[in-house]
Amino acid sequence: MHIGIFRLIRLFLASLFLQSSWSFHSLQSLGFLVTVMGGIDRKKRKFLLQNGRFFFNTHPYMAGFIIGAVLRGIEQENDFESLKKHIMVSQSAFASFGDTFFWHTIRPGLSIMAVLIGLKCGVLGPLLFLVIYNLIHLFFRFYGFIAGYERGWDVVFVLKEKRFLVIQQIFEALGALVTGLLPLILIKNMNALFIIPLSGIFLVFLWKKVAPILILTFVFILVIINLILL
């Protein structure tokens, strides 16, 4: 079974708006329906609108895997209740994978790299971030629809593929390495030694789960103290 290039593009464009109407109660339900509607023929749309009223929430980049499988299920005229059960189970698995893979690994690693290269070499850092991040992100968006449609609900086993684990490990290593290299952007003088106590204080804040807003307030106080001491 092949999804077809035009349908894939339609689904991809619709999935960019997946979270446009995100709310605490309905989560991504409307976005999910709008995306699925873009992938089925007109006759089945009415049926979906009447039966597709349920709550949907997963990682936005991973939604394609589930939506692809749903499209296959609808085309094979699967019972809608069983589709709902599959959606409920798989959305948590994909959400958990996406959070770890993108939010905990790729984005922080690339952000630190963008800051390091950006402060040292200018626009190259942010550009690298955008290119690498979107290559991976767009791959998941497109591949998700294709894999979901071709494999049906077995698509959940994609999460166990070794290549994704390898990518995750590469970005963890990259993030850790560039963190160690961060002091390179400082000017070589005695003031640079301030990073040792400051990093310690910030680390304690992070471990104690201090709100970022308080960390920013602490930075503000430091700037004032710095101005007074001038």
């Binding site: 905990h104 922080p108 630190i112 800051v115 390091l116 402060l119 490990q169 963890e172 290593a173 990259l174 993030g175 850790a176 390495l177 560039v178 963190t179 160690g180 961060l182 002091p183 952007i185 400082l186 000017i187 003031n191 640079a192 301030f194 990073i195 400051l198 990093s199 310690g200 204080i201 910030f202 680390l203 804040f205 992070l206 471990w207 960390i215 930075v219 430091l222």
Partner: peptide, 24 residues
């Protein structure tokens, strides 16, 4: 700039401490 680097190091240690990548 010192604040930015300190924050980056603290965040890096916080994110990577319990992982194998800490060696990096």
């Amino acid at each position: 700039l010192i604040v930015i680097v300190s924050l980056g190091i603290a965040n890096g240690i916080y994110l990577y401490l319990k992982r194998e990548s800490f060696y990096f």
